[in-house]
Amino acid sequence: MREFNETLLSVENISLSFGAVKALTNISFEIKKGEVLAIIGPNGAGKTSMLNVINGFYHPQEGVITFRGEKRRQMKPYDAARQGIARTFQNVALFKGMSTLDNIMTGRNLKMKSNILSAAFYLGPAKREEIEHRAVVEEIIDFLEIQAIRKTPVGRLPYGLQKRVELGRALAAEPDLLLLDEPMAGMNLEEKQDMSRFILDVNDQFGTTIALIEHDMGVVMDISDRVVVLDYGRKLADGTPDEVKNNQEVIEAYLGVGH
């Protein structure tokens, strides 16, 4: 059992609605520095909405988000990215026409400093910088074992590999907090095992804090330090995998209430 004390991000009393539809109601939880946190719940529970609130795509009507000790009402995607939050998407949001390499290079965007003028003429500094960042991207490609598809346009790749490239793009930003929205959806067993291994390696080698949404309970129980359970936009439970597994309310939410 690993222990985590320092809070990296906390959400307090977050409520989000779209017109009359309440997506999230009064949700509070913490993400501790260095842990792997899983957010689970039935379909429509508000898991993706929660990630969208954290990286600033959605702006909650109520609540406070504290990231690295700084309190705020809402995040903005650009600020979130700049301050070290990277993410992947449920439906793979890659740049389809671009190669694996270029996709991952976009993840370095905020790390690159060259301005528009030197970039326009591909002057010395811009060129040097390009080569420097290319080296980092090659390391990520090696890490994720996708050397063979370096130059392939990602639109042609099978789904499992696309998910892996998307993880690569998020890693390229060297994030402190990595949000993964169903990283293993639609994968076969072998691909799931690979992905689990990558997630644990990222957490282990780079110390990256990870918050992930996943439906495969076996995977969730295996890789996460802590689990937050959502249902109908409310938080049902929050604890270690074992605690959550034995929580009566959680069991009812997943299996239905016995009569």
Partner: peptide
């Protein structure tokens, strides 16, 4: 050269492909 080899060129193509994903990697 601008489009294929530079950060801004890549950002331009990224925005064309997917607005949300581009924003998530910090492309303004």
């Amino acid at each position: 050269v601008f489009f294929s080899k530079t950060k801004i060129g890549r950002a331009l193509r990224a925005v064309a492909d997917d607005h949300q994903a581009a924003m998530s990697v910090g492309i303004p």
